[in-house]
């Protein structure tokens, strides 16, 4: 295990997988302005992923490139949170309304952006100067992602009966996955010990405060968590990541030495 590259891959995979997921809205947004907003968010995330993969590639050396890391690793090698690979809807029974449910998209972006707004700020002090620089750039981006998703969370939660029900359903579905943020992992511990990473336990109280304030404004109820704690960051994923990667990686794998 390499503390730096494993930790950087975790951060990079988070950004890439959520960027790819949100890009599914491109051309399908509920309104033109939101279509553009979601694409902007995706491009920010993919940009963050690229910087991190480039940094990993430079640390690993050899023939590692950002493209190899993004397109030629398989499901079990990805280290993103399970939360970020889930489709834009709840379980396909009961309260499922659509394959692309904007409430699910917004709730997920909010929960993750609230974490990253804190984490990127803390990572500005990382012992790895390159990561600190990436953190400074990403912090501005994620602050806007948080603002955008929080604004919509309040509008949907404190909106119509229909939007409230769907926002609460999305929250009930996704919230248990945030348990993974706070679960111990060897990679994160090693990165913290090396001064590269940040111990998320130190951010949890601030995350709770951001989330609770927004949920109160949105008239949504914070779900109780418990039960299974996902382990995407340890490479143990849901059934959804394979499909996402298949779509994302197919072109690069069909033309392995292509350039674009």
């Amino acid at each position: 295990m390499n503390a730096a590259t494993d930790y950087l891959l975790h951060l990079a995979d988070n950004a890439l997988v959520l960027g790819q997921r949100n890009a599914e809205w491109c051309g399908h947004g509920p309104i033109l302005e939101e279509d553009i907003a979601l694409s902007n968010v995706s491009l920010d995330l993919i940009g963050q992923a690229r910087l991190l993969y480039q940094l990993v590639a430079s640390l690993k050396g050899g023939n590692t490139t950002e493209d190899r890391l993004a397109y030629f690793r398989d499901t079990h090698e990805f280290r993103n949170y399970t939360l970020l690979e889930l489709p834009h809807h709840g379980p396909l029974s009961g309260y499922a309304h659509a394959s692309l449910d904007y409430g699910t998209t917004i709730v997920r972006n909010f929960l993750y952006s609230a974490l990253m707004a804190l984490l990127w700020e803390a990572l500005e002090k990382s012992a790895n100067a390159d990561l600190a620089a990436i953190a400074a750039k990403s912090l501005k981006e994620v602050r806007y992602h948080l603002r955008h998703s929080r604004d919509w969370l309040v509008r949907l939660g404190d909106g119509t009966d229909e939007s409230h029900i769907r926002a609460q359903a999305a929250l009930d579905h996704l919230f248990p996955y945030t348990q993974e943020f706070w679960a111990h992992s060897a990679v994160e511990s090693a990165a913290v010990a090396a001064g590269i990473g940040v111990d998320l336990a130190t951010l949890q109280a601030d995350w709770d405060a951001i989330v609770d304030a927004a949920l109160a404004e949105a008239t949504l109820v914070r779900p109780q968590v418990g039960g299974y704690v996902p382990e995407g960051k340890n490479g143990i994923h849901s059934e959804h990541l394979g499909f996402l990667l298949a779509e994302m990686q197919s072109l690069a794998r069909a033309h392995p030495n292509g350039s674009w």
Partner: peptide, 13 residues
Amino acid sequence: AQALEMARDVYTR
């Protein structure tokens, strides 16, 4: 408020 956010995304990209 929403118009301002959307203007940011649509007209200042």
